[in-house]
């Protein structure tokens, strides 16, 4: 039951893009076309889930026993960078088609703050659902949380890309062309998402 709450909360209520503002750069940068937005979301989904599992293990089996939790930021970003590189190499070998599709987006993901954000969130924050005891996530909950968060990222990204494709066909006042009108669109989308608050 708790897993369902985690999933709904991560996708809709605390959407990583529209309510927590992590990963805004790709959100504004590669949302011009629906196809690239989908590719980016898939790549992010893959990397967030994988890196959260690895950094979770790193935190509880290396950093905590050695008492060096302050090395979190440095070690996590290195793990993520290495992981992205590794995923790139493996994909190139195992599934060239998928590599072609995700290709350009993979190196960009290292500096996507959603990845580091989720990895840090599950080891530093306490979560509670439906009035339950606040507690730190265990490995299973962390994995589900990371996966659901990246689904939320994908949902917002794809919705936004669809809106921007329509927007490109309309005439926009000159000063608003480009990023400003995209931000206003994002604002209205975020407004729609605030409707979910209080759901969980």
């Amino acid at each position: 039951m708790e897993y369902i709450f985690i999933i709904i909360s991560a996708i809709f209520v605390n959407n990583i893009l529209l309510s927590q503002f992590m990963g805004i750069c790709p959100f504004l940068g590669v949302s011009n076309k629906l196809s690239t937005a989908t590719g980016m979301s898939a790549a992010v989904c893959f990397v967030i889930t994988l890196s959260t599992v690895v950094t979770y293990l790193l935190q509880y089996y290396v950093l905590v026993p050695l008492g060096i939790e302050f090395m979190q930021t440095i070690s996590f970003i290195l793990v993520i960078a290495a992981l992205v590189q590794m995923v790139e190499i493996i994909l190139k070998k195992v599934s060239p088609a998928l590599y072609q599709a995700l290709g350009i987006f993979l190196p960009l993901i290292t500096t996507n703050c959603a990845v580091l954000g989720v990895a840090l969130m599950v080891v530093t924050k306490e979560f509670s659902y439906m009035g339950g005891e606040p507690h730190m996530f265990n490995l299973g909950e962390s994995t589900v949380f990371a996966f659901a968060t990246s689904l939320g990222f994908g949902l917002a990204m794809i919705l936004f890309a669809g809106l921007r494709e329509q927007l490109a066909l309309n005439s926009v006042p000159k000063p608003f062309k480009g990023i400003p009108i995209a931000l206003i669109t994002a604002s209205i989308l975020a407004m729609a998402f605030t409707g979910f608050s209080g759901l969980v």
């Binding site: 503002f21 000063p175 990023i179 400003p180 407004m191």
Partner: peptide
Amino acid sequence: AFVLAPGAFMVLAYLIVLFK
């Protein structure tokens, strides 16, 4: 709304236009 997420996007959009 201006403290919440929608306001952040909205105010930034108008400030960019103003700055331009």
